[in-house]
Simulated assay, not measured.
Amino acid sequence: MSELSHLDAQGRARMVDVTDKPATDRTAVAEGVLTCAADTVARAVAGDTPKGAVIATAELAGVMGAKRTADLIPLCHPLPLTRVAVTIQPDPALPGFRLRAEVGAHGPTGVEMEALTAVSVAGLTLFDMLKAIDRTMAIGKVRVVEKRGGRSGDWTAGSAA
C-alpha cells in the first residue's frame, strides 16, 4: 500500500476509503483576496458596475461552488454540507476584497476542499463581473485558515509547526 492516501499499491489514483471513519462534525474556513483598482472597489460597493450587485452574486456563486466541489476535484468525496457561508468584504487598504468561506458538514471526511472551492469560485465570479471595468485584478492568497473536527483535531493558521 502506498503511503500516499490517494494512490494504490500500483501508483494509480483512487478515492480514499472512508468506510471505517466515524462521522463527526467538521468545519473548515478558507480565505483569499482579490486585488484591484481603488475605483473598482468603490464602484462595486456603490452598485455602479455594468453587471449590478457583483458582491452578492459572487457570494452566492461561492456557495454554489462549495456544493459542487466533488464534481470539480476528481478524488473528493461528495459530502452533504450542512452549512456554507461566503462573505466578501471590500478592503480599501488592499485595495480590493477579502473573501471568506466557512463550510460545515457531519461526515467521515473534512470540508477543506469545499471551503477552498467556495473562496475560489467567489473570487472568479467577482473577477468575471468586474473585468469590464478593471483589467488589473488578481486573485490570490487562497488558503485554509482553520479546520475543526475529525481524527487530526482542530487546526488554525499559525498553530502548525
Results as ranks from 00 to 15, higher is better:
residue 22 P to E: 05
residue 147 K to G: 09
residue 51 K to G: 00
residue 145 V to T: 15
residue 117 T to V: 14
residue 69 T to Y: 08
residue 151 R to E: 12
residue 25 D to R: 14
residue 95 P to T: 05
residue 123 G to I: 03
residue 7 L to F: 04
residue 3 E to A: 12
residue 62 G to F: 05
residue 37 A to Y: 01
residue 150 G to Q: 04
residue 24 T to P: 00
residue 147 K to T: 09
residue 129 M to R: 07
residue 106 H to W: 00
residue 132 A to P: 02
residue 38 A to Y: 00
residue 112 E to V: 04
residue 55 I to D: 01
residue 140 G to R: 13
residue 59 E to G: 08
residue 53 A to I: 02
residue 92 P to Q: 13
residue 19 T to N: 03
residue 107 G to S: 12
residue 144 V to P: 03
residue 28 A to S: 14
residue 121 V to L: 14
residue 136 T to N: 09
residue 42 A to R: 14
residue 60 L to F: 08
residue 105 A to I: 05
residue 110 G to D: 07
residue 146 E to N: 08
residue 67 K to S: 06
residue 109 T to P: 01
residue 47 G to M: 01
residue 58 A to V: 05
residue 92 P to C: 05
residue 100 R to S: 15
residue 144 V to G: 03
residue 25 D to Y: 05
residue 122 A to E: 10
residue 48 D to E: 15
residue 63 V to W: 04
residue 62 G to V: 01
residue 127 F to I: 01
residue 146 E to M: 12
residue 94 L to C: 11
residue 109 T to H: 07
residue 112 E to D: 14
residue 68 R to F: 02
residue 28 A to C: 11
residue 41 V to S: 04
residue 54 V to I: 09
residue 7 L to I: 05
residue 13 A to I: 03
residue 60 L to W: 10
residue 11 G to N: 00
residue 158 G to F: 14
residue 153 G to Q: 09
residue 9 A to W: 00
residue 79 L to F: 04
residue 153 G to L: 07
residue 115 A to F: 12
residue 116 L to Y: 06
residue 147 K to P: 09
residue 11 G to A: 00
residue 64 M to R: 12
residue 77 H to E: 11
residue 144 V to F: 01
residue 133 I to T: 09
residue 14 R to E: 09
residue 27 T to K: 15
residue 31 E to A: 11
residue 128 D to F: 08
residue 153 G to S: 09
residue 47 G to K: 00
residue 45 V to R: 01
residue 39 D to S: 13
residue 55 I to W: 01
residue 151 R to C: 00
residue 116 L to R: 10
residue 134 D to R: 07
residue 117 T to Q: 14
residue 98 R to Q: 13
residue 59 E to V: 02
residue 14 R to S: 06
residue 11 G to D: 00
residue 16 V to L: 12
residue 151 R to L: 02
residue 7 L to D: 03
residue 113 M to W: 11
residue 36 C to S: 12
residue 146 E to P: 03
residue 159 S to A: 15
residue 149 G to P: 02
residue 83 R to P: 03
residue 33 V to C: 09
residue 132 A to H: 04
residue 148 R to M: 02
residue 95 P to H: 09
residue 69 T to P: 06
residue 2 S to F: 04
residue 34 L to P: 07
residue 150 G to I: 01
residue 136 T to E: 12
residue 58 A to W: 04
residue 59 E to D: 09
residue 31 E to C: 10
residue 135 R to S: 13
residue 57 T to I: 13
residue 85 A to L: 13
residue 4 L to E: 08
residue 40 T to N: 12
residue 134 D to F: 04
residue 114 E to P: 06
residue 125 T to I: 06
residue 34 L to D: 11
residue 128 D to I: 09
residue 16 V to S: 07
residue 107 G to R: 05
residue 70 A to G: 11
residue 2 S to Y: 04
residue 136 T to S: 15
residue 91 D to E: 15
residue 62 G to M: 05
residue 148 R to Q: 14
residue 129 M to C: 09
residue 121 V to P: 06
residue 112 E to Q: 14
residue 70 A to P: 10
residue 1 M to I: 04
residue 106 H to K: 07
residue 69 T to E: 12
residue 13 A to H: 10
residue 109 T to G: 05
residue 29 V to K: 11
residue 101 A to Y: 02
residue 47 G to N: 01
residue 70 A to W: 11
residue 43 R to F: 00
residue 92 P to F: 06
residue 80 P to W: 02
residue 56 A to V: 04
residue 20 D to Y: 02
